[in-house]
Design a protein around this nucleic acid. Sequence first.
DNA 1: ATGGCTTGACATTCAAGA
Length: 254
Amino acid sequence: MKLVTWNVNSLKVRLPQVLQWLEMNPVDVLCIQETKLTDDKFPQAEIEAAGYQVVFTGQKTYNGVAIISRHPIEAVQKNNPLFEDEQQRIIAATIAGMRIICAYVPNGQALDSEKYPYKLSWLAALRDWVKAELEQHPQLALLGDYNIAPDDRDVHDPAAWEGMNLVSPAERAAFQALLDLGLSDSFRQFEQPEKTFSWWDYRQLGFRLNKGVRIDHVLLSKPLADRCTSCVVDRVPRKWEQPSDHAPVIATLD
DNA sequence: ATGGCTTGACATTCAAGA
């Protein structure tokens, strides 16, 4: 069982790469973020033609999330019922007995931006909702772009980033609060190469110089974490022409 | 030096991303 998260930064631009990647990597569940498409423009037929089911919720220009699955998709929930939000950032569904939550956490922009308190309250509401979901679905996976680098190991230059958006103590505490629900950062269940990241800036040769951050995560509840045999970042599509600035993160379960 | 890419939109510059 392979569960994947990938921020595609516009599905309109990236659809050929998503289909190419799925052909090379026949996964069970692919959660994507930043589709940037209203639902009437979503390429459902193309994804179904590739042998997958898909559910999605989007809006114009910003945000938008989808779950692509090889298995039947049931009990779809769009957005957090505990948090009124016009921004389309969450879609959840039950697939193969697992509760799958695909989340695009607000970026926050900067600590003095009005988007930063929005990010923190959004994360607090996510925690409350995931807690309730866990009580109903012990087998739960929370995949997405968290816009949080949980640890200094997850930042190419921790000194330069200290106290900044993505690494601030309040954001890291919000991430820890999710782990405290009993979730496991599947990437850290295993020995990993140093300086493994999931996002690199388009500018200033960010990818070539590996100036990145690890902000895309697969969190697993205990029953799923116990079945997890690996979690890796696939850097291959980041090297393609006109890539997303994020790479897919793949968790494999027995 | 807030620059440097990339995407999308009531575009022909601006907002937003991270």
